[in-house]
Each structure stands twice: as C-alpha cells, then as structure tokens.
C-alpha cells in the first residue's frame, strides 16, 4: 500500500528541484483553496486566477517557510488575502466606473423555486448564489468558519478582526443563509 508523502517531505523535494512534488501539493490542496476562493469570489476566471496566484505565491515563498504553521493554514492565509484584494479592486473599479445599470452592482437574489428533489449541480448553484448574496465581510466568515471549519479565534486571526466581530458576522450571515436555504436545509 502506498502511503501519502508528508507536506514537509514534498516541500523538501520541491526545493531540491522536483517539479512533480509541487504538482502533488497543488493537487492535494486545490479543493480546499477552491472552496475558499469560489466561496469568496464566486465562479469564473477571477476565482481561477486567484487560485493559481495562491499556489504561485506559495512556490515563491517555499524557501522561506519555517514550518510554524501547517501548509494548509499557510495557503488559506494567502488565498484569503488575495481574495480580499480582488474584492477591493472590484469594488474600487465599480465605484470609479459606475454604470447606469445599477442592477449589476446588486448581489444576485435567490429566485430558485422551492423544489423537493434537486440535482447536485443545482444545489451547487443554490449555494453559490446564496454565498454571493452575502456581504463580502460576512461571506469571508462563512467560508472560514462554516465551510473550512476554522475556530472563531483562527477566523479572527485570518481576517485581522476581533473575535466578537466574527461572532456577530457569523450570526447575521447564518440568519440570512437560513432564510435563503430554508427549503433545502430543514431545521
């Protein structure tokens, strides 16, 4: 039976010039980073670009990694920072180039009809639209706390906000999500 190579060993191999070891790191963490990035930015080219940039930043900083935190935590930190930057840029752009069609600025509303049996693709679409309907600040807390399963303290550290703010944002976001996803998530 083949045992999984540890992150530390993979990093050592990458630093020794093994490109394939880095591919393994990407494949190991791509789903986790995808959950964060698509949760924060939605689907599309932006999310893919930020996902790629996350791994490029990791590759460039590999020689400096000292193993104080796990590779997953390190990648999460890079991804969150890049997502926050991307959201800021997007909003700045919209502010300066305000279009008359203000509907584009508003988050997409959830207008899917309540159906008992829905396909996996549809469920993904529902989750995607529900997350996009949240304020980016609330969305970040939801992604880290509810999807990634980080503690309140860790979430607060990632986002550089007090724990009380995490709790209040989480409470508000959950309230909205409960309303939007009620037909699919029974209490």
């Amino acid at each position: 039976m083949k045992t999984a190579v540890s992150d530390t060993e993979l990093i050592r191999q990458v630093l020794a010039g093994d490109e394939n070891a880095f591919r393994q790191i990407v494949e190991r963490y791509s789903n986790r980073i995808a959950a964060i990035v698509t949760g924060m930015l939605g689907r599309g080219q932006d999310a893919d670009d930020v996902g790629q940039e996350t791994f490029i930043r990791l590759y460039q900083s590999l020689p400096k990694i000292r193993g104080e935190s796990s590779l997953g935590t390190y990648l999460t930190r890079i991804a969150i920072n890049l997502c926050v930057d991307a959201i800021r840029k997007k909003w700045r752009w919209r502010y300066w180039f305000w279009m008359e069609d203000s509907e584009e600025i508003l988050p997409p509303e959830l207008t899917i009809e309540n159906g008992a049996a829905i396909e996996s693709g549809e469920r993904k679409e529902i989750v995607h639209r529900a997350l996009q309907a949240l304020d980016p600040k609330h969305r970040a807390v939801v992604v880290l706390r509810m999807i990634e399963g980080y503690s309140t303290k860790e979430t607060a550290e990632f986002l550089h906000i007090p724990m009380g703010t995490v709790l209040s944002r989480l409470s508000r976001a959950q309230e909205r999500l409960r309303v939007m996803l009620k037909p699919w998530v029974e209490e």
Binding site: S30, A34, T38, G39, A47, V127, L131, M146, I147, L181
Partner: peptide
Amino acid sequence: FLKSNVDSF
C-alpha cells in the same frame, strides 16, 4: 449543506 456543495476549480 454548504460544505458538500462548494465549487471546485
């Protein structure tokens, strides 16, 4: 529900 329905690349 959220975890099982997040997108991938």
